[in-house]
Computed example of a mutant assay.
Amino acid sequence: MSEGVEWAIHSCLNLTWLEPGEAVTAARMAAYYSLPAAYMNKQLQALARAGILTSTPGPRGGFRLARAPEDITLMDVVTAIEGPEEAFRCEEILRHGPGEHEGVDYRRGCYVSQAMRRAELAWRRELAGQTIADLRDTVERRRPSVPGETRAWFANLRT
């Protein structure tokens, strides 16, 4: 997984703590983590294309959540950044090994492929079962000062 997934999840989490109607530019979000603004913008645009964020142009524009945090799963964010493709791609190398048989679907018959698919399904289920709201609630419970500190930081930054 690319680092963009981490950036995107943190960005969504930060957006949960903003005042209603407030938006954050890609440059401001990037400055929060000392990340390159252009690359952060790429991640935020991908989230907007996926319907996770909305993007508003103009001097008071920026990004905000398009859906309630309860309706955004970690899998939604991963898919927005990485795409829907499977992490493990069976290249059917058995087809080129000894005992080759025409017409055999090696993706279905290969035990390595089966094990990797089971693991990926478990991973996807876990990510689909966790929302941005779940993360927000955990942070607020364990670090209650973070929401206020995040709001204050974004309110005071002039980027």
Rank of each mutant, 00 (worst) to 15 (best):
G62D: 07
L65D: 04
W153L: 08
Y106T: 04
L47M: 05
P69T: 12
Q45R: 08
D76S: 10
S145M: 04
T73K: 06
I81A: 06
R141P: 02
V146D: 14
V77R: 04
G148L: 11
N156F: 04
A133K: 08
L135E: 09
D71Q: 14
Q114C: 08
H101V: 13
E102P: 01
Q45V: 13
L65Y: 06
G62Q: 02
G58D: 01
V78A: 14
G103H: 10
G109C: 06
S145R: 08
W153I: 09
T56L: 07
H96G: 01
A122P: 00
D105Q: 10
E86F: 07
G99A: 06
G97I: 06
Q114H: 08
Y39N: 11
L94F: 07
T131C: 05
T73D: 09
R124V: 05
A80N: 01
F154W: 09
A155F: 02
T79F: 08
G62F: 03
L53I: 03
M40L: 12
T56S: 08
F154E: 01
E92A: 14
Y111C: 01
W123Y: 15
R151F: 04
P69Y: 13
L121K: 12
R118Y: 10
A119M: 09
N156G: 15
T138P: 01
E126F: 12
E82V: 14
E100P: 00
M116G: 08
A128K: 05
F63M: 04
I52Y: 00
A119W: 07
A66R: 11
S145G: 08
Q43I: 02
I72V: 15
L94E: 13
P57R: 08
R141I: 02
R107F: 01
F154H: 15
T150Y: 10
D105W: 09
P57V: 06
T150R: 13
I93S: 09
Q130Y: 04
F63T: 03
R124T: 04
I52D: 00
H96V: 00
V112D: 02
L74N: 09
R124D: 09
W153N: 06
L94D: 11
L47V: 02
G148R: 13
T54R: 14
A80L: 05
L135V: 11
V146S: 04
C110Q: 13
T54A: 11
A80C: 05
P84E: 15
R107G: 09
D76C: 07
W123F: 13
Y111I: 02
E126V: 07
Q114I: 11
V146L: 14
L74V: 12
E140K: 10
G62Y: 01
R49V: 03
F88I: 12
R151L: 14
R136D: 03
R118E: 15
M116N: 13
E91H: 06
